[in-house]
Computed example of a mutant assay.
Amino acid sequence: MDRRHVLAGAAASAVLAAPALSQGLVRWRMATTWPKSLDTLYGSAEALCRRVTQLSEGKFTIQCFAGGEIVPALQSFDAVQTGSVECSHILSSNFLGKDINFAFDGGLPFGLNMRQQTAWVHEGGGLNLLRDLYKKYNCVNFLAGNVGVQMGGFFRREIRTVEDLSGLKMRIGGFGGRILAKFGGVPQVLAASDIYSALERGTIDATEWVGPYDDEKLGFHRIARFYYSPGWWEGSAAITAIANTAAWESLSDVNKALFETACNEQNTLMMAKYDARNPDALRRIVGAGTQLRIFPRPMMEAMYRSSFEEFETLASQNADFKKLYEAWLPFLDNSNAWFRVAEYTLDSFRLTSRIPGR
């Protein structure tokens, strides 16, 4: 065989070997709904992606994008549904216009706290019910974080009675907007990057986002002087990673396990980051002149009654809501009964008692 045949054979072998070298490599994109400035939410999505790469030794990588980089923030769900991107990182409560039942995933007013939501999803049958829901939208869902109980938001004026909500234009996501509207409020859904300018221009009178650490970064305290608590519209706000069904089904069992493991890890670590950073952020916000307020109890009671009345109404009109509600409500009731025995009893004592010597 002459030299030309040897070189030709080597070249052919190299061409044939190239696909083999790429076999088993998976490249995904994650379109998040968060700006990069939020190292809790966007940072958690980035950490999830890095963890998948690490655990797979580079064989499964996910490139993370901030809201607006490849898809507008509030179109990220649609992008996964259509297969434009493989996955996203969302608060499903922002997509109730697509399906009101996503509230059982993101969080309902006066509903499950972070621990209860995790328990309902993983041990109370919630995951299978939510998977059935997301399947209708060509997606597979994974619990991937939680921000805990949120603050009630920044307001330009004080809220003393339920009547003060009439005409109030408020950026509020999720189910809470439906309840606010019943009392004359005007709910607005805005991406994080659009809230500050809307508040500054007076397009909205109030806004909620998450809590002190994120809210300080977004600068709301520089415009609105009253900071209210609690964010009653979600017992906790669960963060969801969604994957396109076809993309998910194309993964090996090992890669599926890696993705789920990374999601479960972030469900713990996101909450840890918020709990560690919110206290100091709240002190800084109040130190800068913000006035901390608690929503009046009569208003909270009115919101509570209205929320459960709305649940019952929707259950009578929406078969999917009824199915989810009839599974969720007994779990809430049973879990609350247990939390009152130990958690609440100890917390109500220790949180109202001064540490000796402090």
Rank of each mutant, 00 (worst) to 15 (best):
D214Q: 10
D214H: 06
D214E: 15
D214I: 04
D214G: 07
E216K: 11
E216M: 12
E216H: 10
E216T: 01
L218R: 09
G219W: 02
F220W: 06
F220K: 00
F220G: 00
H221E: 04
H221G: 04
H221A: 08
R222V: 04
I223A: 10
I223L: 15
I223E: 08
A224Q: 01
A224G: 05
A224I: 03
R225W: 08
R225V: 02
R225A: 13
Y227V: 03
Y228N: 10
Y228D: 14
S229I: 08
S229Y: 12
G231C: 02
G231V: 02
W232G: 14
W232E: 12
W233S: 14
W233Q: 14
E234Y: 09
E234L: 11
G235Q: 10
G235D: 11
G235H: 10
G235K: 05
G235L: 06
I239M: 05
T240V: 09
A241P: 02
A241L: 14
I242L: 13
I242W: 08
I242C: 08
A243Y: 08
N244R: 01
A246V: 07
A246I: 02
A246L: 03
A247E: 01
A247K: 02
A247L: 00
W248R: 05
W248N: 07
W248H: 07
W248F: 11
W248V: 00
S250Y: 02
S250K: 09
L251M: 07
L251E: 06
S252P: 06
S252V: 01
V254Q: 15
V254M: 09
N255L: 04
N255Q: 14
N255W: 02
K256Y: 04
K256E: 07
K256V: 01
A257T: 04
L258E: 13
L258G: 12
L258W: 11
F259Y: 13
F259R: 03
F259A: 11
